[in-house]
Structures are given as C-alpha cells and as structure tokens.
Design a protein around this nucleic acid. Structure first.
Lengths: 328, 328
DNA sequence: CTGAAAGCGCTTACAG
DNA sequence: CTGAAAGCGCTTACAG
C-alpha cells in the first residue's frame, strides 16, 4: 500500500489542527506567520502535497483545461497546443488533451471533459453538436472555439480575420496586374476556408475578375493532388491562393514536379505561416495567423469566465498580415 | 450555483439506496438486472454522471496518464502524442499533457503529475533528475521513457534499436562501395543520437573506414546549417547519415541550395520516417521507427504496472527498418 | 442482492 | 487567529 501524507499527518507533527494545515495550502486563507512556519517545516519534512481530488470534490472547481484537437498532421495545431500549455501552466492550470478522430467531437470525449469537471474547454479543429454545447452551458463550463467562427453567438470564438485576409490577398494579386486566379479550398465545412474564400471572391467580383475554385481538404496530399489536376487540365492560372500552408507546400511540390516556375509562371500564397513556410525549399509567401494574440485572447476570456461565469459570448477576429517570400 | 446530479438523487428517484447506484456505475460490482434497469432509467432522466474526483479520492486511483513532451517542432512527437491518446482512450484513460521548455523536466511539472496522482507517466524527449524518479517510485507510479534509453535499469524504456539501425545504415553505404561518410548528430545528451552513432561507427571501424562527425541539434535549422558548413569546408563526403529526419530535410535543402546533387554527388539517410520524408520535394531514404509497436509496448507495460505495481523495469528496443527512397 | 454506515482528504462556516 | 465539526460524492466492508 502506498501511504500518502495527509494534512492530518502534518497537523500532528506540527502540533496544530488539520484546518490550519489546510489554510496554509489554500490560497487566500489567513494564518499567522508563526503557525505557517511550523506547518511548512512539518510539511517539508513529510513531503506533504494537498490532494487535488479532495480539493476539487469540496470546491467543485478544478484547475484543468480541456483541449480538443483533431489535426496533429498540420503543424499549426501542435504549435497552438504548446502555446496553450505554456500560457495555462503560468496560471496554474493543467491541460487535459483530448484527441478526436472524427470531425465531430465524440460523445465519449465530451463525457471525459464533463467527468473531470474541467474549468474550461478549448475546441480547435473539430465541430460540436448543438446538444453537446448545451451540456457545457448547463454545467457552466466556458467553451472557446479556436480558429473556428460560429454561426451563432452561443459560444466565444477566436479566429484570424479571415474575411479581411482573403480580401487583402485578392488585392495583392490584383495590384500586380494579375487577373486569372484560383482558390484552393480546405474542408468545405470549416469557417476558415469559407471566410478566406468569401473575402477573396468579394474583391474579385467587385473588380469584375473571375477566378476558379478548387475543393480540397487542408492536407499536404490534398494540395498536391489538386495542383496535379490543375496542371493536367492545362490553362494554369497566374496566381493561386491556397487556404492553408500545408496544402500550399503540396501545391508547390506538384508545380515543381511539373517544372512550372514559381513565381514566374504562377504565384502562390498560403495561410498560417507555419514554420515550414520559411524553409529554403519552399520560401512560401503566406498570411500569418497571429497565434500569440489568439492564444492570449482565449486564455483571458477563459480565466474571466472561470472567475465568474456569465456565459457571455463574442466572436473575436484578430488581424493577421502578409509575409512576403519567394513564391510571389 | 450549478447543481450537479449525485448518486443520491438517482437513488431517490429510482427508489433504491445510494450504494446500489454506485454499484451500477462501478465496474465489477454486482447488481440485479431489475434494479440496474430502474437505476439506469433514473440516471438517464437526471443526466447522472459519477464524479471522477470523489471516485479517485476513495479509490486512490485515477484514470489519467501524464505525457511529458518538449519538442512539438519535430512532427515525430505530435504523431506519438496522437497515438498515445488514441490507445489510452480505448482503455478508458485520459491524457494530462505536460509541456516542458527545458531539457530537464521542471519541478513544477512533476508536482502537477503527482498532484493529480496520475496512474502512469510517459516521458518522451526530456530528461529527468534522479531525485525526481525517486518521487515517482515512492508513490508507486510507473514511468516509461519513450524514445530514450537509460543508463540504469531503474525505469522502463522503449526505443527503436538504434544501435542496430546505425550498423545497418553503415553496411548499406559500405555495400554500395562508399567509404567516405559523415554522421550528423542530434543533441549530444540523447541516447538516440549516441546509439545511432555508436552502431554506425562500430561497423566502419571494423571495415577500417573513417567517417567525419558533425554535432547538431535535431532541428531543421541545425541540419541546414551543418550542411552549409560542410559545403563551405569543401570535400563533401559520398554519404551522410543524419540522426533524424527533420535535420535531414534541412540537409537536403542546404545541398539543393548549393546545387549538390542527391544521390549523385552525395547520398543521405535520415531517421524516423516522419510524414514529410515521403513528400515529393524530399523523397528521403530513412530508417523507420516502428511507432505502433513502441506505443503498444508502452501502453501494455503501463497497464500491467497500474493493475499491479512491481516497479520492474526493462530496456526494450524494437527493430525498425530502412525505407529506400530517392536520396540513396 | 441490497442498505446503512464509515471514511477517502480536503474546505469552510461557526464558535471561541 | 485557531480548532472542532460538517460535508463534498463517492466505494466498500459489513450485516441482513
């Protein structure tokens, strides 16, 4: 049997009551310096550590943030995970990592989150059924959709200003005298791909320019195959806006395989500014997502809602910027 | 106030005792089909969910596995994280994700793991002070070092058979008539880099062939810079064994930037077989780490030790294999 | 098979 | 400022 040192043990050694021991380890409680010192000494000697479970049981609060993630194949997300882990660690919170295979969060995953009574939830590249959302609301657990804009204002969501980004990319091309463009979309059911396209389209329509639309799936292989198809079809556009970087890398590789010069014959702009975009092999011009700011906003909101739940939601969109490299 | 539905509420509605409710939700306990049905109906109606904290408090066990990770920049690790999450989910365990910045696990991180009384710990690309290991042993928490071999047999460790891999790579080159080789090392304090080199060196020594050693750091930039230096020094070896894929990609890009043909002027072999190694831009020949097997072994060990702690440790090395692509 | 009761290790009114 | 005591929501011997 493993014997765990409890507050009672410390109390006995220090010659005080168990409540005093509790007070020393509970932030905000008052104890005299003298007893605090005695208790700390005893706690040190015994290697005492407050039991997180007893604590959560009685306070009905936890220091756990659930992060739901699907696409670890896109380096954007591990990067995001790392930043959240760092930011929350600083605030004394730990991360419960939930990986979903499906686009939609599985009931099982939600169960886990609720069972551990997480203080807050961050959902990245996954969708959540409405009923599930209600579960969280009922339990007063704040939820943030990260990098996904919602139709409703039911939940807080943080994303890059994708509409604006799409517009700026179209203008960038247009200003350089390009009128034949193409857009390679990510998963059709994501707000990111839709908004990037919408902004892009809006400007071109206004300039009475046309563009071709290609459906893809936010993966390297999807980008590669799409570009191969474009090449096979002949009639290459003068510029391609690709909905994310990992697809854009696939596009560049496909173009290279077909000896199509970039930016000579066609220009390419991606989205995210993942680390690889700056690699010498690619030197991809891309729209940078301000991860720092997005993470910061998410953490701030969650912390506020944890302190006092209001259920208030907002759709936050943070401005990004174009990083020019060698593909334009 | 959020009112949580407890076993007591369910008991009242179902007209049974609270103990019976507990038995229905506790695996292994016996209840008659009749009362089980009544209780399940009542639980469904109220939306009852057993409180994980009360449960852990009384059983002194948790269903949480702690995973400590540093390098999310190397796609090998997110891949590993995903596989662990999937494997443990299947067994009803959740993942506490701990991200360290330092090479050595920070005291704070260990505190977290101990506070949550995790059922088991997986340490990937980080080092642990001996004293810390003792903490886990004292609390009878099984620990696995993943992708790191230990000097002592204090803890279970799972890695690829790096020694064998290094030998095979050397033989591969030698069999093709190459005698001028180089090894680009990863972080010097990792067993992976040391063992890969040791095996490589062993064969070459035996064949009385020499090789050059370059120190690097397991990052893309590290690989890139090292190869640039090699080029600047002139006298390019006929083959380079790079201690991991992400560095190898940097090497390939540097060689390309200098118009050095691969495999014409020099051949390159990496290690890991990350997804990118198969991208058309790289087509990297590499030694594949059998992640599936490594994860499987880790999970199996941990589950056994959780069921009955013995503290027995072992150094497991799983055989990988060479994946030939276009760089050799 | 089922219920009453003790107890896991804490926090927190309530007195003193 | 401190202690005795209740109680958080469970599991689990112990009777019946």
């Amino acid at each position: 049997m493993k014997h765990t040192v409890t507050a009672k043990d410390v109390a006995k050694l220090a010659g005080v009551s168990q409540s005093s021991v509790s007070r020393v380890f509970f932030e905000g409680a008052k104890v005299s310096e003298k007893t605090r010192a005695k208790i700390m000494a005893a706690a040190e000697e015994l290697g005492y550590r407050p039991n997180e479970f007893a604590r959560s049981l009685i306070t009905n609060r936890t220091k756990i943030i659930g992060i739901v993630m699907k696409g670890v194949h896109n380096p954007f997300y591990p990067q995001v995970l790392k930043q959240f882990a760092a930011a929350f660690k600083e605030k004394g919170y730990s991360i419960l990592f939930v990986h979903t295979n499906n686009d939609e969060i599985e009931a099982e995953d939600v169960e886990t989150l609720l069972n551990y009574n997480v203080a807050g939830v961050i959902i990245t590249d996954a969708v959540m059924a409405l009923k599930v959302g209600e579960e969280f609301k009922k339990n007063k657990i704040p939820v943030v959709f990260f990098n996904r804009k919602l139709n409703s204002e039911e939940f807080y969501s943080v994303s890059c200003n994708n509409l604006d980004a799409g517009r700026k990319v179209a203008e960038y091309f247009f200003d350089r005298g390009i009128s034949e463009m193409a857009y390679i979309a990510g998963d059709a059911d994501t707000s990111t791909s839709r908004d990037r396209q919408k902004g892009f389209q809006e400007v071109l329509k206004q300039k009475k320019a046309r563009y071709r639309h290609y459906s893809s799936d936010y993966t390297y292989n999807g980008g590669f195959k799409t570009a191969m198809r474009m090449v096979a079809e002949g009639d290459m556009p003068s510029a391609i806006f690709v909905a994310n970087d990992i697809m854009a890398l696939g596009v560049l590789d496909a173009l290279k395989a077909n000896s199509i010069r970039v930016p000579g014959q066609t220009k390419v702009i991606g989205f995210d500014n993942i680390e690889m975009a700056s690699w010498p092999a690619y030197q991809l011009t891309t729209w940078e997502q301000p991860i720092d700011k997005m993470v910061h906003a998410t953490v701030a909101y969650l912390l506020e809602e944890i302190a006092e739940y209001t259920g208030a939601a907002e759709t936050l969109e943070v401005d990004g910027r174009l990083i020019e490299r060698a593909t334009t």
